[in-house]
């Protein structure tokens, strides 16, 4: 056994509980943010290069930005590094080069938790709710860092997702896929984030539910919160996007407004099926 802390003998669930699969390779806590000179986009991951652990680089000089009131969408083929790019912006990846700026501050050195305090809301793709807690408790946990009265925010979330008010005393794990995603987005909104990041919010839901979720996301964006979103359903996502990033092999392949990208024959041919 070369690694003394390896997986050997770790499958007996009557003595141990499975450890969660970790979300990434987060920036360790303790870093600080510093103000930057000049005007910058509201949130930008600029020229990001990096990968997980000491592995090969997944992102190569990749830039993602979003401005207030906008929906920015990252699309691309499987394995293009879409989710990785978003994780890098959220600090779940140690960048080897590049920087992340939020609201005029360099936050490259901050841990994901510290970024939440700075106003980033993140909805992971999987395991994004507390299944054994009720819907209301999920929202309360979303607001854990807030010491003020958050009942107003909860009211806003309930009016945005009325079904959640109906089911607020049910364990979130008993809800349908679409409703779970609403809980997940609602949980992230409870900190009143300055920017909301969604990692494939429509993964695994039916087309009808997907349309409804997109409608809700547009509604959230109308409240003024910039949204950065990774999407598998490229066509629908680009239709609602103010800005689109097509990633190929961890680099920016095409960038433009959603409409431009949808009209671009190259993009259509390669990613949207003609």
């Amino acid at each position: 056994m070369t690694d003394p802390y390896s997986d050997r003998g770790n499958k007996d669930r009557s003595i141990t509980r499975e450890a969660p699969a970790h979300l990434g390779d987060p920036v360790p806590p303790g870093g600080t943010a510093s103000p930057v000179e000049g005007t910058t986009p509201f949130l930008i991951g600029r020229a990001m290069t990096g990968g997980y652990g000491s592995g090969a680089d997944i992102l190569h000089d990749c830039t993602i930005a979003v401005e207030p009131g906008e929906i920015a969408v990252i699309v691309g083929p499987n394995g293009a590094g879409k989710s990785t790019a978003m994780k890098a912006v959220f600090g779940m990846l140690n960048l080897r080069q590049g920087e992340v700026l939020l609201d005029g501050e360099d936050i490259t050195g901050l841990s994901p938790q510290a970024r939440v305090l700075k106003g980033m809301g993140f909805v992971p793709q999987t395991a994004n709710i507390f299944t054994s807690l009720t819907v209301e408790e999920n929202l309360e946990m979303g607001a854990f860092v807030r010491r003020d009265d958050f009942s107003g925010t909860m009211e806003q979330v309930y009016s945005l997702f009325p079904i959640l008010r109906e089911k607020r005393l049910q364990p979130a794990g008993e809800l349908s896929g679409g409703q779970r995603q609403q809980v997940a987005v609602g949980r992230a909104l409870m900190t009143e984030p300055k920017v909301l990041m969604l990692d494939e919010p429509t993964a695994g839901v039916s087309p009808i539910v997907m349309d409804e979720l997109f409608d809700r996301i547009i509604e959230v964006s109308r409240t003024g919160i910039p949204i950065l979103m990774v999407e598998q359903n490229a066509r629908q996502a680009l239709e609602i996007a103010d800005k689109g990033y097509v990633l190929v092999q961890g680099s920016n392949a095409y960038t433009g407004t959603g409409r431009e990208l949808l009209a671009d024959p190259e993009v259509r041919k390669s990613f949207l099926g003609g």
Binding site: P20, H22, L23, P112, Q113, V116, L117, F122, P124, A127, N128, I129, F130, T131, S132, L133, E137, E140, M141, G142, F144, V145, R187, T191
Partner: peptide, 19 residues
């Protein structure tokens, strides 16, 4: 107490929620 249950349920999400 709720944060303990949340942590037991989903450690990563608990971390992201600032627990």
């Amino acid at each position: 107490g709720k944060s303990m249950r949340a942590f037991s349920d989903n450690e990563d999400l608990a971390l992201l929620s600032g627990i």
